[in-house]
Amino acid sequence: MSEAIIQGKKLSRWYGVVMGLNNIDFEILPGITGLVGPNGAGKSTLIQIITGQLQPSSGMLTVFGDEPWNHPAVLKRIGYCPERESLPEHLKPMDWLRGLGQISGISGHAFPELGVRLLKRVKLGEQHWKKRMGQYSKGMRQRVKLAQALMHSPDLLILDEPMNGLDPMGRQDIADILKGLAKEGVSIVISSHILAELESLCKNILILNWGRVIASGAKSEIRSDLSQWAEELCVRCEDPHKLASILFQEGHLLGFDIQEEEKKLEFRIKDPGQFYQRWNVLLQSSNLTIYEISSKSQSLHQIFNKVTTS
Protein backbone atom coordinates (compact mmCIF):
# COMPACT_ATOMS: atom_id res chain seq x y z
CA MET A 1 0.00 0.00 0.00
CA SER A 2 1.31 3.49 -0.85
CA GLU A 3 2.45 5.72 1.93
CA ALA A 4 0.34 8.78 2.63
CA ILE A 5 1.80 12.06 1.38
CA ILE A 6 -0.53 14.19 3.49
CA GLN A 7 -1.66 13.17 6.93
CA GLY A 8 -3.97 14.98 9.30
CA LYS A 9 -4.21 13.88 12.93
CA LYS A 10 -6.87 15.37 15.16
CA LEU A 11 -6.54 18.49 13.05
CA SER A 12 -8.62 21.49 14.04
CA ARG A 13 -8.63 25.07 12.97
CA TRP A 14 -10.71 27.86 14.45
CA TYR A 15 -11.31 31.40 13.32
CA GLY A 16 -12.28 32.97 16.61
CA VAL A 17 -15.43 31.08 17.54
CA VAL A 18 -15.96 29.75 14.03
CA MET A 19 -14.75 26.22 13.44
CA GLY A 20 -12.98 25.79 10.10
CA LEU A 21 -11.84 22.20 10.64
CA ASN A 22 -13.09 20.07 13.48
CA ASN A 23 -10.75 17.41 14.87
CA ILE A 24 -10.28 15.53 11.62
CA ASP A 25 -8.13 12.52 10.83
CA PHE A 26 -7.36 11.68 7.25
CA GLU A 27 -4.71 10.53 4.83
CA ILE A 28 -4.13 11.52 1.23
CA LEU A 29 -2.32 8.98 -0.89
CA PRO A 30 -0.24 9.58 -4.03
CA GLY A 31 -2.26 10.09 -7.20
CA ILE A 32 -5.06 12.51 -7.92
CA THR A 33 -7.34 13.22 -4.99
CA GLY A 34 -10.52 15.23 -5.23
CA LEU A 35 -11.43 17.49 -2.36
CA VAL A 36 -15.18 17.84 -2.28
CA GLY A 37 -17.56 19.76 -0.09
CA PRO A 38 -20.08 22.56 -0.14
CA ASN A 39 -19.12 26.17 0.58
CA GLY A 40 -17.91 26.54 4.16
CA ALA A 41 -17.00 22.86 4.42
CA GLY A 42 -13.38 23.64 5.27
CA LYS A 43 -11.74 22.90 1.89
CA SER A 44 -9.92 26.21 1.60
CA THR A 45 -8.80 26.08 5.22
CA LEU A 46 -7.38 22.62 4.67
CA ILE A 47 -5.62 23.74 1.49
CA GLN A 48 -4.14 26.75 3.24
CA ILE A 49 -2.78 24.55 6.02
CA ILE A 50 -1.34 22.11 3.49
CA THR A 51 0.40 24.96 1.65
CA GLY A 52 1.83 26.49 4.83
CA GLN A 53 -0.29 29.64 4.83
CA LEU A 54 -2.16 28.77 8.01
CA GLN A 55 -1.24 26.83 11.10
CA PRO A 56 -3.46 24.27 12.79
CA SER A 57 -5.14 25.46 15.99
CA SER A 58 -4.65 21.98 17.38
CA GLY A 59 -3.60 18.59 16.08
CA MET A 60 -1.11 18.11 13.31
CA LEU A 61 -0.87 18.08 9.56
CA THR A 62 2.17 16.73 7.77
CA VAL A 63 3.09 16.84 4.10
CA PHE A 64 5.83 14.43 3.06
CA GLY A 65 6.33 13.76 6.76
CA ASP A 66 6.87 17.36 7.92
CA GLU A 67 4.71 20.29 8.90
CA PRO A 68 4.59 22.78 6.02
CA TRP A 69 4.45 26.05 8.01
CA ASN A 70 7.73 27.96 7.57
CA HIS A 71 9.36 24.84 6.14
CA PRO A 72 11.10 25.53 2.78
CA ALA A 73 12.07 21.88 2.21
CA VAL A 74 8.37 20.93 2.22
CA LEU A 75 7.20 24.00 0.31
CA LYS A 76 9.81 23.29 -2.38
CA ARG A 77 7.88 20.11 -3.18
CA ILE A 78 4.48 21.81 -3.33
CA GLY A 79 2.99 23.78 -6.20
CA TYR A 80 -0.07 25.84 -5.36
CA CYS A 81 -2.71 27.26 -7.64
CA PRO A 82 -5.16 29.31 -5.55
CA GLU A 83 -8.81 29.90 -6.27
CA ARG A 84 -8.39 33.67 -6.06
CA GLU A 85 -8.05 35.39 -9.36
CA SER A 86 -5.92 38.24 -8.10
CA LEU A 87 -2.74 38.50 -10.10
CA PRO A 88 -0.38 41.47 -10.12
CA GLU A 89 -2.38 43.48 -12.65
CA HIS A 90 0.52 45.58 -13.88
CA LEU A 91 2.88 42.70 -14.65
CA LYS A 92 3.31 40.68 -17.78
CA PRO A 93 3.22 36.93 -17.21
CA MET A 94 6.85 36.37 -18.11
CA ASP A 95 8.06 39.03 -15.65
CA TRP A 96 5.91 37.56 -12.93
CA LEU A 97 7.06 34.01 -13.58
CA ARG A 98 10.69 35.11 -13.63
CA GLY A 99 10.33 36.87 -10.25
CA LEU A 100 8.54 33.93 -8.66
CA GLY A 101 11.04 31.55 -10.21
CA GLN A 102 13.96 33.39 -8.66
CA ILE A 103 12.24 33.32 -5.28
CA SER A 104 11.77 29.56 -5.70
CA GLY A 105 15.46 29.12 -6.39
CA ILE A 106 15.46 28.90 -10.17
CA SER A 107 18.37 30.71 -11.74
CA GLY A 108 17.53 33.76 -13.84
CA HIS A 109 19.45 32.09 -16.69
CA ALA A 110 16.68 29.50 -17.05
CA PHE A 111 14.45 32.30 -18.31
CA PRO A 112 12.91 33.16 -20.70
CA GLU A 113 13.12 29.59 -22.02
CA LEU A 114 11.44 28.06 -18.99
CA GLY A 115 8.74 30.74 -19.04
CA VAL A 116 8.04 30.07 -22.71
CA ARG A 117 7.76 26.34 -22.11
CA LEU A 118 5.44 26.83 -19.16
CA LEU A 119 3.12 29.24 -20.95
CA LYS A 120 2.99 26.92 -23.95
CA ARG A 121 2.35 24.01 -21.62
CA VAL A 122 -0.72 25.69 -20.11
CA LYS A 123 -1.74 26.76 -23.62
CA LEU A 124 -1.79 30.48 -23.07
CA GLY A 125 -1.88 31.96 -26.55
CA GLU A 126 1.41 33.62 -27.50
CA GLN A 127 -0.43 36.79 -28.53
CA HIS A 128 -1.28 37.36 -24.85
CA TRP A 129 2.23 37.11 -23.48
CA LYS A 130 2.99 40.80 -23.98
CA LYS A 131 -0.20 41.93 -22.27
CA ARG A 132 -0.37 42.97 -18.64
CA MET A 133 -2.23 40.40 -16.58
CA GLY A 134 -4.83 42.99 -15.58
CA GLN A 135 -6.19 42.62 -19.11
CA TYR A 136 -6.58 38.87 -18.82
CA SER A 137 -9.85 36.94 -18.85
CA LYS A 138 -10.70 34.50 -16.09
CA GLY A 139 -9.57 31.55 -18.16
CA MET A 140 -6.24 33.16 -19.05
CA ARG A 141 -5.63 33.90 -15.38
CA GLN A 142 -6.25 30.27 -14.51
CA ARG A 143 -3.64 29.20 -17.04
CA VAL A 144 -0.99 31.61 -15.71
CA LYS A 145 -1.75 30.54 -12.16
CA LEU A 146 -1.24 26.94 -13.16
CA ALA A 147 2.04 27.85 -14.89
CA GLN A 148 3.45 29.42 -11.73
CA ALA A 149 2.44 26.36 -9.73
CA LEU A 150 4.29 24.06 -12.13
CA MET A 151 7.41 26.20 -12.33
CA HIS A 152 9.57 24.53 -9.69
CA SER A 153 8.56 21.02 -10.74
CA PRO A 154 6.62 20.11 -7.58
CA ASP A 155 5.94 16.60 -6.33
CA LEU A 156 2.55 17.69 -5.04
CA LEU A 157 0.23 20.07 -6.81
CA ILE A 158 -2.57 21.72 -4.85
CA LEU A 159 -5.29 23.18 -7.05
CA ASP A 160 -8.17 25.16 -5.64
CA GLU A 161 -11.02 25.32 -8.15
CA PRO A 162 -8.72 25.26 -11.19
CA MET A 163 -11.59 24.86 -13.65
CA ASN A 164 -13.30 28.10 -12.64
CA GLY A 165 -13.88 30.39 -15.56
CA LEU A 166 -12.65 27.95 -18.19
CA ASP A 167 -14.65 27.05 -21.24
CA PRO A 168 -15.14 23.33 -22.02
CA MET A 169 -12.00 23.27 -24.17
CA GLY A 170 -10.03 24.95 -21.44
CA ARG A 171 -11.27 22.43 -18.92
CA GLN A 172 -10.22 19.63 -21.19
CA ASP A 173 -6.78 21.23 -21.59
CA ILE A 174 -6.31 21.48 -17.84
CA ALA A 175 -7.61 17.95 -17.32
CA ASP A 176 -5.12 16.67 -19.90
CA ILE A 177 -2.26 18.53 -18.23
CA LEU A 178 -3.20 17.10 -14.85
CA LYS A 179 -3.46 13.58 -16.21
CA GLY A 180 -0.05 14.01 -17.82
CA LEU A 181 1.46 15.24 -14.57
CA ALA A 182 -0.08 12.34 -12.66
CA LYS A 183 1.51 9.94 -15.13
CA GLU A 184 4.86 11.60 -14.42
CA GLY A 185 4.37 10.83 -10.72
CA VAL A 186 3.11 14.19 -9.51
CA SER A 187 0.45 13.87 -6.83
CA ILE A 188 -2.46 16.24 -7.17
CA VAL A 189 -5.05 17.47 -4.72
CA ILE A 190 -7.82 19.22 -6.55
CA SER A 191 -10.77 21.01 -5.08
CA SER A 192 -13.64 21.69 -7.41
CA HIS A 193 -17.34 22.30 -7.50
CA ILE A 194 -17.48 20.79 -10.99
CA LEU A 195 -17.90 17.23 -9.82
CA ALA A 196 -18.09 15.74 -13.28
CA GLU A 197 -14.48 16.82 -13.86
CA LEU A 198 -13.36 15.35 -10.57
CA GLU A 199 -15.20 12.14 -11.39
CA SER A 200 -13.12 11.60 -14.49
CA LEU A 201 -9.85 12.76 -12.95
CA CYS A 202 -9.71 11.47 -9.42
CA LYS A 203 -9.00 8.04 -8.08
CA ASN A 204 -9.50 9.12 -4.49
CA ILE A 205 -11.78 11.61 -2.87
CA LEU A 206 -11.99 13.37 0.46
CA ILE A 207 -15.42 14.72 1.30
CA LEU A 208 -15.71 17.52 3.84
CA ASN A 209 -18.75 19.10 5.38
CA TRP A 210 -19.02 21.47 8.34
CA GLY A 211 -15.29 21.10 8.98
CA ARG A 212 -15.43 17.33 9.29
CA VAL A 213 -14.33 14.50 7.02
CA ILE A 214 -17.48 12.74 5.89
CA ALA A 215 -15.79 10.16 3.71
CA SER A 216 -12.34 9.54 2.30
CA GLY A 217 -10.52 6.97 0.22
CA ALA A 218 -10.86 5.45 -3.21
CA LYS A 219 -14.14 6.24 -4.95
CA SER A 220 -14.97 2.54 -5.13
CA GLU A 221 -14.32 2.08 -1.39
CA ILE A 222 -16.50 5.01 -0.55
CA ARG A 223 -19.27 3.57 -2.67
CA SER A 224 -19.11 0.30 -0.74
CA ASP A 225 -18.86 2.19 2.56
CA LEU A 226 -22.05 3.89 1.61
CA SER A 227 -23.86 0.62 1.00
CA GLN A 228 -25.89 1.11 4.14
CA TRP A 229 -27.64 3.86 2.28
CA ALA A 230 -30.43 3.08 -0.12
CA GLU A 231 -29.16 1.83 -3.44
CA GLU A 232 -31.23 2.20 -6.55
CA LEU A 233 -31.97 -0.62 -8.95
CA CYS A 234 -33.78 -0.64 -12.22
CA VAL A 235 -35.44 -3.88 -13.42
CA ARG A 236 -37.22 -4.46 -16.74
CA CYS A 237 -39.53 -7.47 -16.53
CA GLU A 238 -42.82 -8.81 -17.86
CA ASP A 239 -44.84 -7.54 -14.84
CA PRO A 240 -43.26 -4.72 -12.86
CA HIS A 241 -46.39 -4.37 -10.66
CA LYS A 242 -46.02 -7.94 -9.45
CA LEU A 243 -42.34 -7.48 -8.71
CA ALA A 244 -43.04 -4.30 -6.78
CA SER A 245 -45.71 -6.11 -4.77
CA ILE A 246 -43.30 -8.93 -3.86
CA LEU A 247 -40.58 -6.54 -2.82
CA PHE A 248 -43.04 -4.47 -0.79
CA GLN A 249 -44.35 -7.52 1.06
CA GLU A 250 -40.78 -8.55 1.88
CA GLY A 251 -40.16 -5.06 3.29
CA HIS A 252 -37.28 -4.15 0.98
CA LEU A 253 -38.65 -1.00 -0.60
CA LEU A 254 -38.04 2.58 0.37
CA GLY A 255 -39.77 3.83 -2.74
CA PHE A 256 -40.43 2.86 -6.34
CA ASP A 257 -41.55 4.08 -9.73
CA ILE A 258 -43.16 2.01 -12.49
CA GLN A 259 -42.85 2.97 -16.14
CA GLU A 260 -45.63 0.98 -17.80
CA GLU A 261 -44.59 1.40 -21.42
CA GLU A 262 -41.04 0.27 -20.82
CA LYS A 263 -42.14 -2.35 -18.29
CA LYS A 264 -39.59 -0.91 -15.96
CA LEU A 265 -39.48 -0.83 -12.18
CA GLU A 266 -37.08 1.60 -10.53
CA PHE A 267 -36.80 1.16 -6.81
CA ARG A 268 -34.76 2.20 -3.79
CA ILE A 269 -33.64 -0.47 -1.37
CA LYS A 270 -34.05 -0.15 2.37
CA ASP A 271 -31.24 -2.47 3.50
CA PRO A 272 -28.92 -3.45 0.64
CA GLY A 273 -27.12 -6.07 2.78
CA GLN A 274 -30.31 -8.06 3.49
CA PHE A 275 -31.79 -7.35 0.08
CA TYR A 276 -28.93 -8.87 -1.92
CA GLN A 277 -28.98 -12.02 0.26
CA ARG A 278 -32.64 -12.56 -0.74
CA TRP A 279 -32.57 -11.11 -4.25
CA ASN A 280 -31.86 -14.32 -6.23
CA VAL A 281 -34.44 -16.33 -4.27
CA LEU A 282 -37.07 -13.64 -4.76
CA LEU A 283 -36.51 -13.51 -8.50
CA GLN A 284 -36.72 -17.30 -8.85
CA SER A 285 -39.86 -17.58 -6.72
CA SER A 286 -41.61 -14.75 -8.57
CA ASN A 287 -41.54 -16.75 -11.84
CA LEU A 288 -41.21 -13.48 -13.72
CA THR A 289 -39.32 -13.11 -16.96
CA ILE A 290 -36.57 -10.59 -16.36
CA TYR A 291 -35.33 -8.64 -19.38
CA GLU A 292 -32.77 -6.38 -17.80
CA ILE A 293 -31.35 -5.44 -14.40
CA SER A 294 -29.24 -2.34 -14.00
CA SER A 295 -27.79 -0.67 -10.99
CA LYS A 296 -27.82 3.08 -10.89
CA SER A 297 -24.15 3.28 -10.03
CA GLN A 298 -23.28 6.13 -7.76
CA SER A 299 -21.61 8.99 -9.49
CA LEU A 300 -19.46 11.33 -7.46
CA HIS A 301 -22.31 13.77 -7.56
CA GLN A 302 -24.67 11.23 -5.99
CA ILE A 303 -22.13 10.24 -3.36
CA PHE A 304 -21.55 13.90 -2.57
CA ASN A 305 -25.24 14.61 -2.29
CA LYS A 306 -25.81 11.64 -0.05
CA VAL A 307 -23.06 12.28 2.40
CA THR A 308 -23.62 15.99 2.64
CA THR A 309 -27.37 15.77 3.10
CA SER A 310 -27.47 12.75 5.38
Binding site: P72, H90, W96, Q102, I103, S104, G105, I106, L114
Partner: peptide, 26 residues
Protein backbone atom coordinates in the same frame (compact mmCIF):
# COMPACT_ATOMS: atom_id res chain seq x y z
CA UNK B 1 13.24 17.64 -19.54
CA UNK B 2 13.43 21.40 -19.05
CA UNK B 3 12.22 21.17 -15.47
CA UNK B 4 14.60 18.35 -14.71
CA UNK B 5 17.49 20.31 -16.17
CA UNK B 6 16.53 23.42 -14.24
CA UNK B 7 18.01 23.19 -10.78
CA UNK B 8 15.77 24.49 -8.03
CA UNK B 9 17.90 25.72 -5.15
CA UNK B 10 16.17 28.21 -2.90
CA UNK B 11 18.65 30.74 -1.50
CA UNK B 12 18.45 34.16 0.08
CA UNK B 13 20.11 36.13 -2.76
CA UNK B 14 17.63 34.54 -5.19
CA UNK B 15 14.69 35.36 -2.94
CA UNK B 16 15.92 38.94 -2.59
CA UNK B 17 16.45 39.28 -6.35
CA UNK B 18 12.96 37.93 -7.09
CA UNK B 19 11.21 40.13 -4.56
CA UNK B 20 13.20 43.19 -5.64
CA UNK B 21 12.15 42.57 -9.23
CA UNK B 22 8.49 42.22 -8.32
CA UNK B 23 8.70 45.24 -5.99
CA UNK B 24 10.13 47.79 -8.39
CA UNK B 25 7.95 46.59 -11.22
CA UNK B 26 4.91 46.97 -8.96
Amino acid sequence: SILQKTPVRPNFPGILAGIWKLTWKS
